[in-house]
């Protein structure tokens, strides 16, 4: 029987039983959004929480996918069952995408690892909605860690990584990455820094720059992690192409997770994640309603009034907000 015709509860049940096809199907549903994805969220949310969620980001060409592949292999070696969400941009023109991250992981990743390629589908906001849902599915299906890999270029991508339990920022020599990281706000979100391509000239310079920035972090308040605890991120030197440094990177990620287990840091961090998701979801809902009302013409009277100078646009907007929140 085709998995497209199975009910959501059936798919969730199968996913929990370790059926990768069901997991794959659920991820498609979550990605598309809509009523079905709400059902998936309702079923998976209460069961979530076992997975260590790790976000990995860095500039294009930093070697993230290769590094992720190495990390997965190391996790497998340690007896874990990891999964990855590899996020790549869609073509802004056609909406299509070429998702090539699997190849870079292919070589080193043992069987049993779950890799899912996800396109941004042109809506950065959509990513903020789809990723938490996808992470929940993988979590409930028993994968841990669940690694989210994004190109650290847009704010939404950075936010997605920042919302993980542990955020890893990858820098490389020769790209002015330290400076870039600072600009994009990556410095504040990083729990672990990886200087990849550490065999290249300039790698120690990148490390030094990062150390300097971290030394100054208490001035900017960046020395506290997302849960409010004082934390100085480790800087690990690695060469993903050869696998050098992989063990140290995994150690640092695991150390950070242990740090989160002191008092209620993990709970607070995850509460922040739920809160961010609720906010994105609510914003989306309001915007959807507004779009529908504009589209159906039910706001035309208010707009016409304002055009005719009976009330100011500010008053009109306030009225519309009232209607938005009053209805339903």
């Amino acid at each position: 029987m085709s998995y497209r015709n199975r009910t959501i509860p059936e798919l969730v049940e199968r996913a929990i039983d370790g059926d990768n096809r069901a997991v794959g199907r659920l991820l498609t549903i979550v990605e598309r959004g809509g009523v079905q994805s709400e059902e998936v969220a309702a079923l998976t949310h209460p069961q979530r929480g076992r997975a260590h969620v790790v976000g990995i980001t860095g500039a294009p060409g930093a070697g993230k996918s290769t590094l992720v592949g190495r990390l997965l292999a190391e996790y497998c070696r340690r007896g874990h069952r990891p999964a990855v969400l590899a996020i790549d941009p869609s073509s802004p023109i056609s909406g299509g995408a070429i998702l090539g991250d699997r190849i870079r992981m292919d070589d080193v990743v043992p069987e049993g690892t779950f890799v899912r390629s996800m396109a941004t589908r042109g809506h950065q906001g959509g990513l903020a909605l789809a990723v938490p849902g996808a992470v929940r599915v993988l979590d409930v299906a028993g994968f841990s860690p669940v690694v989210i890999e994004t190109v650290g270029v847009g704010q939404v991508e950075v936010d997605v990584v920042a919302a993980a339990d542990t955020a890893v920022v990858v820098a490389t020599p020769g790209m002015g990455d330290a400076v870039q990281a600072n600009k994009a706000g990556l410095l504040e979100v990083a729990d672990v820094f990886v200087v990849n391509k550490a065999d290249r000239p300039g790698a120690t310079d990148v490390r030094r720059d990062l150390e300097l920035m971290l030394d100054l972090a208490h001035v900017t308040g960046a020395d506290t992690d997302a849960s409010g605890a004082v934390f100085r991120p480790e800087i690990i030197m690695a060469t993903a192409t050869s696998g050098e440094g992989t063990v140290a990177v995994v150690d640092a990620i695991v150390d950070h997770f242990e740090h989160l287990h002191i008092s209620d840091r993990l709970e607070r961090r995850r509460a922040g994640r739920v809160r961010a998701e609720i906010r994105s979801r609510a914003e989306q809902e309001l915007l959807d309603r507004l779009a529908t009302m504009l589209h159906t013409g039910e706001l035309d009277d208010i707009i016409r009034d304002s055009v005719a100078s009976h009330r100011s646009p500010v008053q009109a907007a306030a009225e519309i907000v009232g209607r938005l929140t009053g209805n339903h």
Binding site: G33, S37, H123, Q124, G126, L290, L294
Partner: peptide, 13 residues
């Protein structure tokens, strides 16, 4: 309202 293309459309994509 969706100009800029950075919002998900209301229902299913």
């Amino acid at each position: 309202i969706y100009r800029g293309g950075n919002r998900l459309s209301p229902a299913q994509t």
